[in-house]
């Protein structure tokens, strides 16, 4: 151990930190009043937007898959399942919308797990702000991700010939409902993100848990065609209730009961997993 690190040939750089400017910068910073909890969370939401801008790969991954699914399923199974691709598209578009946004929500956990391995979390935790602000802000930022993903699926659906009897209002309400549910589900994945060791472990287990939930539902098929045990599972699967409500809103025949059920499920998920995430985050050292 020597007192000096290995010398390297330093390239000429602009001379930083001229004493005068440095001193001016150091002394010209009166402390502003501390931000409120929501302002801090909003700032972390802004950080989430910046990440979408600088690291768009995650969004592309998560939206490309459902785009492929939508096109493949429509043309591959459409004829076999409903007799025509157009009719099948009518059936699966709301389902693929749900599928694509729910898969995107896994990235909330992946991003948090990645953050925890970096020094920047130490900085956040040493700031005089609401301690849950980084988490709440990140999940709010993720809602923008969900909005982008759902817009892509819906636009593609229209391009392929989908027609919504629920009108523009119905489609927007359906997208909003899916985003609300994905917000709630994000908390499950942030909890996972704090419990598991690596970002890829979060991604794998998140997808592993989502696959049966998404496919063993009424996303792609009519449950009445299933063996009775499977049909029973599909009917209690919360993803099915979300797909039913989404389909209803887009088709203009949603029932208040279906929508209420989804909102209740979202509220329960959030009530359990949001506080759990915050507790785990605070306990991490």
């Amino acid at each position: 151990m020597t007192p000096t690190p290995t010398p390297q040939a330093a390239k000429p750089q602009p001379q930083p930190a001229a004493g005068v400017t440095l001193n001016a910068a150091l002394s010209s910073s009166a402390r502003p009043p501390r931000p409120g909890a929501l302002a801090a969370a909003k700032t972390f939401g802004w950080r989430g937007m910046l990440k979408i801008k600088h690291v768009p790969e995650q969004l592309i991954d998560a939206t490309l898959t459902p785009v492929l699914f939508l096109v493949m399923f429509t043309y591959l199974f459409g004829g076999a399942i409903t007799g025509s691709t157009g009719e099948y598209l009518q059936y699966i578009l709301p389902g693929v919308l749900v599928q694509s946004v729910l898969f995107t929500s896994v990235y909330s956990g992946v991003a948090l797990n990645t953050d925890m391995t970096k020094g920047v979390v130490d900085r956040f935790r040493s700031l005089p702000i609401w301690r849950a602000a980084p988490l709440v802000g990140a999940v709010i930022g993720d809602c923008v991700r969900f909005a982008i993903a759902s817009t892509i699926v819906v636009l593609l659906g229209f391009a392929l010939g989908f027609h919504a009897d629920g009108g523009v209002a119905g489609v927007l309400a359906a997208m909003l409902l899916v985003i609300v549910f994905a917000f709630a589900l994000s908390w499950v994945f942030t909890t996972l993100g704090l419990l598991l060791r690596s970002p890829s472990a979060v991604m794998n287990s998140g997808f592993m848990a989502l696959f049966p939930l998404v496919f063993l539902s009424n996303t792609l098929i009519e449950p009445s065609t299933l063996p009775s045990a499977l049909e029973a599972f599909v009917n209690v699967n919360p993803v099915s209730s979300l797909v039913t409500a989404t389909r209803g809103l887009m088709g203009g025949d949603a029932s208040a009961g279906d929508i209420g059920l989804v909102l209740a499920e979202a509220a329960i998920l959030t009530a359990i997993f949001a506080p759990l995430t915050v507790r785990l985050y605070r306990a991490k050292s």
Binding site: P35, A40, T43, R47, V120, R123, F124, I129
Partner: peptide, 21 residues
């Protein structure tokens, strides 16, 4: 280093400034 790799240098400082109020 307690800075965010996925943001620019300027964005890092703006982020901190806003978090400090």
């Amino acid at each position: 280093a307690s800075v965010d790799d996925d943001l620019t240098g300027r964005e890092n400082l703006i982020l901190l400034g806003r978090l400090l109020g």
